[in-house]
Computed example of a mutant assay.
Amino acid sequence: MMRRLLLAVALVLAAAPAFAVNPDEVLADPALETRARAISAELRCMVCQNQSIDDSNAELAKDLRLLVRQRIADGDSDEQVMNYIVSRYGEFVLLKPRFEAKTLLLWSAPVLLIALGGISLVVFARRRAGKPTGTALTEGEEARLNELLKK
């Protein structure tokens, strides 16, 4: 029983994500390190593009993590750090884009596509409902049908 429990714990720990933050990057103050980890989890690795800089082992991601920690150590707020990174690397560096006028289409696209799909289905169903399906029966088929219905 104990072996199974240890095996289960080992499997769970093996499946946990391996964060790329190296020990030499960690800030001495736990509160500042927590802020740095939260910020770096929101920033995209420009090399990997599907990972945060917190999860990436790329050199650029390491440089960005160090930059975030440097800005925090210098006294910048979280918003100032994010604005600084975005000013240098553009909006693409954000894993979750900001809700602004220029990103309105990005944020509204799923709702618009679902609505457009629903409208298309309704229009298609209405057009289809008005048209008969198949072809008209021939005289022989109609006579055979009447014969079968009389039985």
Rank of each mutant, 00 (worst) to 15 (best):
M1F: 06
L5S: 10
V9M: 01
L13Q: 10
L13V: 11
A14C: 07
A14L: 15
A16I: 05
A16F: 11
A18P: 03
A18N: 07
A18D: 04
A18Y: 10
F19K: 07
F19L: 13
V21N: 04
P23G: 07
D24W: 13
E25I: 03
E25D: 03
V26S: 09
L27R: 07
D29M: 00
D29Y: 01
A31R: 14
L32A: 10
E33Q: 15
R37D: 12
R37A: 11
I39Q: 03
E42R: 09
R44W: 03
M46A: 15
M46D: 10
V47N: 14
Q51V: 01
L60Y: 01
K62I: 09
R65G: 08
I72F: 01
A73V: 13
G75D: 01
E79Y: 05
N83Y: 03
Y89T: 06
F92Q: 11
L95C: 05
K96V: 15
E100S: 13
E100D: 15
K102T: 08
T103P: 03
T103S: 09
S108V: 15
A115R: 03
A115Q: 07
A125N: 07
R127M: 06
R128H: 10
G130W: 01
G134A: 01
T135N: 01
E139P: 04
E139V: 00
E141F: 00
E141K: 00
L145I: 00
N146I: 00
N146H: 04
N146L: 04
N146G: 06
E147I: 01
L149Y: 05
K151N: 11
